[in-house]
Design a protein around this nucleic acid. Structure first.
Length: 254
DNA sequence: ATGACCTATTTTATAGGA
């Protein structure tokens, strides 16, 4: 079984690439972030034709998330229960016995900004909710665009980007608190070349020069860690014409 | 080189992303 996450930076623009990718990579579950479209514009028919069930939670212009799955999704939750939020960032469902959470974490802009404070509040709420979900669903995966690096190994220029957004101590402490619930970074369960990233700036020939960050993550629960046999970042779609700035991350479960 | 992008918007500049 394969599960994947991909920030597509506008599903309107990227739909043909998502369908191409699914044809080549027929994963069982794909979490999408940054749909940037309203619910009425979600291309459900295209995914149905491709053999996927879909859950979606859209928003005009910004954010928006979806879960595509070969099997139907049950017990669907939108956003973090009890956390008032006008931004569509979280979609959760049970698929083939696995509690799947797809999330688009806030960017945060810069330390000290309102957006940074929102990111911290959102992370607090997410952690409390994930802890609750984990207590009821031992087989759980939390995947998406976290907008946080674990450490300097996830950063192309750790000196130049020291304590900047995605790399601040506050964000990394939050990420460690999530992991401390009993989750594991699937990427680090395996060997990867140094400077393996999931996002590259559109500017400054970022991808060509591998000036990137690893900010798209798949965290698996203890029960799922035992089943996880691979975790790969697929750079191929980043080489497309008109690519997303993010690459898909894929895990394989036995 | 003090630069370089992309998407969406009641566009013709601005906001937001990361």
């Amino acid at each position: 079984m394969k599960l994947a996450t991909w920030n597509v930076n506008s599903l309107n623009v990227r739909l043909p690439q998502v369908l191409d990718w699914l044809a080549t990579n027929p994963v069982d579950v794909l979490a999408l972030q940054e749909l940037k479209l309203t619910d009425d514009k979600f291309p459900v028919q295209a995914f149905t034709d491709a053999g996927y069930h879909a859950q979606w939670f859209g928003q005009k212009t910004y954010n928006g998330v979806a879960l595509l799955s070969r099997s139907p999704a049950a017990e669907v939750v939108r956003n973090i229960p009890g956390f008032e939020d006008d931004q569509s960032r979280v979609l959760c469902a049970t698929i083939e016995g696995i509690r799947v959470i797809g999330a688009y974490f806030p960017n945060g802009q810069e330390r000290g900004s309102d957006k940074f404070a929102y990111k911290m509040r959102w992370l607090d709420a997410l952690r409390a909710w994930v802890q609750d979900e984990l207590s009821r669903h031992p087989q759980l995966v939390l995947m998406g665009d976290y907008n946080i690096t674990f450490d300097d190994a996830d950063v192309w220029d750790p000196v130049g980007l020291h304590e900047t957004i995605h790399c601040t101590t506050e964000e990394r402490t939050q990420l460690q608190s999530l992991v401390a619930l009993g989750l594991h970074d699937a990427h680090r369960l395996f060997e990867h070349p140094p400077k393996t990233f999931s996002w590259w700036d559109y500017r400054m020939l970022g991808f060509q020069k591998n000036r990137g960050l690893r900010i798209d993550h798949i965290l698996v629960s203890e029960a799922l860690r035992a089943r996880t046999s691979a975790c790969e970042i697929d750079r191929a779609p980043r080489k497309n014409k008109q690519p997303s700035d993010h690459a898909p991350v894929v895990i394989t479960l036995d």
